[in-house]
Amino acid sequence: MNFTLHIWRQENAKAKGHFETYKVSDISPECSFLEMLDILNEQLINDHIAHPVCFDNDCREGICGMCGLYINGRPHGNDDGITTCQLHMRKFHDGDEIWIEPWRAKAFPIIRDLVVDRSAFDKIIQSGGYVSVTTGGVPDANAIPVPKRFADMAMDAAECIGCGACVAACKNASAMLFVGAKVAHLAMLPQGQVEANERVKKMVCKMDELGFGSCTNTYACEAECPKQIKRQNIARLNREWIKQLFAGNHKPEE
């Protein structure tokens, strides 16, 4: 198979970027999208055409959340429930033009070419996306039964890989699905109850502060999530937020 690639090139965070056009040929349909880019890079180096295209990738089996390209108008390309590394060239037609762009969002500044800085996600989690237990001194694992239904729902939400496709797809660059998934995951479990109010407050404030947009219920995030995390998690986030609004705010005396 042969393809014409239009790839966003940008030297560094401050440089002005532009699209560059490359051609690749004799690509096997079994080849994954990132392997196709490997082949392109090999070609760029060998023929001294340009600096190889930089793109984030790591596990190449759809779980680490490192890869993320905006391909022909869709985050992770034209298939549902996959990451970019799971996209295979058999999904394209011979001779296709492929436009490859980085995630675009104020909160995800570009580092180089297709690589963006997603540390904003880490900062949201750091603000409260966990249960505050220190190591040791916890009850036995079976001390608190959790209804299977809740455990399963928590797991549905916990599958988020933090790739940022939700932000990339959202017209508002909103991180509500990402935050919603974490809040919903912990809200479903008894272990997460203790800090539920504080957690949602801190995470949402952090999210706003970092320059993510608000949710306008278009559900683009749900449509593009590689782990198919549901919009209900955003509703859950809203619910937790309302709960928090009405919860008494006890300020310890200084």
Binding site: G73, N78, W99, S174, G211, G213, T216
Partner: peptide
């Protein structure tokens, strides 16, 4: 406000299925 959260817009129009 939301418009400001994507200072550089995508070249390709979105093909995501949305509401």
């Amino acid at each position: 406000q939301n418009r400001k959260n994507r200072p550089v817009r995508y070249h390709q129009t979105s093909r995501t299925k949305t509401a």
